[in-house]
C-alpha cells in the first residue's frame, strides 16, 4: 500500500530525514516510535504534502501512485488522512460547515455525487455519537475553544467521515487523559479494516496498548533504525531510546 524509498528531506537547510525506508501493507497498523526530534512529525507532514518541506531525494508511493507529485488536497482525495498533532482552529467556520465542505470536495474529486444534507447529517450524527461528541460542539467554529481532547476527537470524527484508506495519527495521544484516550482509540479501532492502513506516530507505548500495532518501527536521526512486532514497543518502554543514541555527538 504505502512505500517510502530512500526519503531525504530538509527544512530551511536543516536535514531531517536521511534516507528513510518504510513499507506499510493494506490492513496493517504500523507504529513509528522515536525520541523527540527524530523526524516523526516531519514524516507525517511530508506524507500529507506540507509546503515548507523540501524533498531532496526518494519517493513515496501510495498504491503505486507518486504522492510527491500531488497537492495536499489531491493526496486527501486518494485517501491520505493526517490526524494533526495540533489541530488548527478556524474561527468563523462552523464544524458542520467544514465537515460538509471537505466531504463533498473529496467526493467530487473522486467523481462521486455530493451527499444530500439529510444523508450527511445522519452520518455525522452517527460518528459523533460513537466518539461522544455533543451536538453543540458541531455547531461551534472548528476547534475554537475546544479542549485538547475535544480537538483530537474531532480529528477522529473527520477520519470516520472521510473514510480514508491511509491514516496517519501524529502523536494523537498527546494531551489526552485516560478517558479521552479510550474514546479516541475505540474510534480508531472501529475503523480498522483489511482495506485500510494506519501509521501511528507516538512517543509512548501507552497508546499502543489501546491501538495494537502489527509492526513497530523505531525512528532515529531521520531513518528507521529497527523494526519488529508489537513486542518491540514494550522493549522500548523498558529500555528507552538510549541505545539508538550511540554514535551521536554528545
Amino acid at each position: 500500500m504505502l512505500e517510502i524509498k530512500n526519503l531525504h528531506v530538509q527544512i530551511e537547510d536543516k536535514r531531517i530525514l536521511n534516507g528513510l525506508n518504510l513499507t506499510v501493507n493494506k490492513g496493517e497498523i504500523a507504529a513509528i516510535m522515536g525520541p523527540n526530534g527524530s523526524g516523526k512529525s516531519t514524516l507525517s507532514y511530508v506524507l500529507a504534502g506540507k509546503e515548507d518541506y523540501e524533498v531532496l531525494d526518494g519517493e513515496i508511493l501510495l498504491d503505486g501512485e507518486n504522492l510527491l507529485e500531488m497537492e495536499p488536497d489531491e493526496r486527501a482525495a486518494v485517501g491520505v488522512f493526517l490526524a494533526f498533532q495540533y489541530p488548527l482552529e478556524i474561527p468563523g467556520v462552523a464544524s458542520m460547515t467544514f465537515l460538509k465542505a471537505t466531504l463533498n470536495a473529496q467526493r467530487k474529486a473522486r467523481g462521486e455525487e455530493e451527499l444530500s444534507t439529510p444523508d450527511f447529517i445522519k452520518r455525522v450524527n452517527a460518528a459523533a455519537q460513537q466518539l461522544e461528541i455533543p451536538k453543540d460542539m458541531l455547531k461551534r467554529a472548528l476547534n475554537v475553544g475546544f479542549s485538547g481532547g475535544e480537538k483530537k476527537r474531532m480529528e477522529i470524527l473527520q477520519m470516520a467521515l472521510l473514510q480514508p484508506s491511509f491514516c496517519i495519527l501524529d502523536e494523537t495521544d498527546s494531551g489526552l487523559d485516560i478517558d479521552a484516550l479510550r474514546i479516541v482509540s475505540e474510534g480508531v479501532n472501529a475503523l480498522r479494516s483489511p482495506d485500510r492502513a494506519f501509521l501511528v506516530i507516538t512517543h509512548y507505548q501507552r497508546l499502543l496498548n489501546h491501538i495494537v500495532p502489527d509492526t513497530v518501527h523505531v525512528m532515529h536521526s531521520g531513518r528507521i533504525v529497527k523494526s519488529g512486532g508489537k513486542e518491540l514497543a514494550l522493549e522500548l518502554e523498558a529500555s528507552g531510546y538510549a541505545e539508538y543514541r550511540t554514535g551521536e555527538a554528545a
Binding site: K50, E51, E71, P72, D73, F84, L88, A101, L162
Partner: peptide, 14 residues
Amino acid sequence: EDLLFYLMARGLPK
C-alpha cells in the same frame, strides 16, 4: 498557510 494546508489535507482544492 497552516490553515490552508489543513483544509487541503482534508481534500479542499486551493
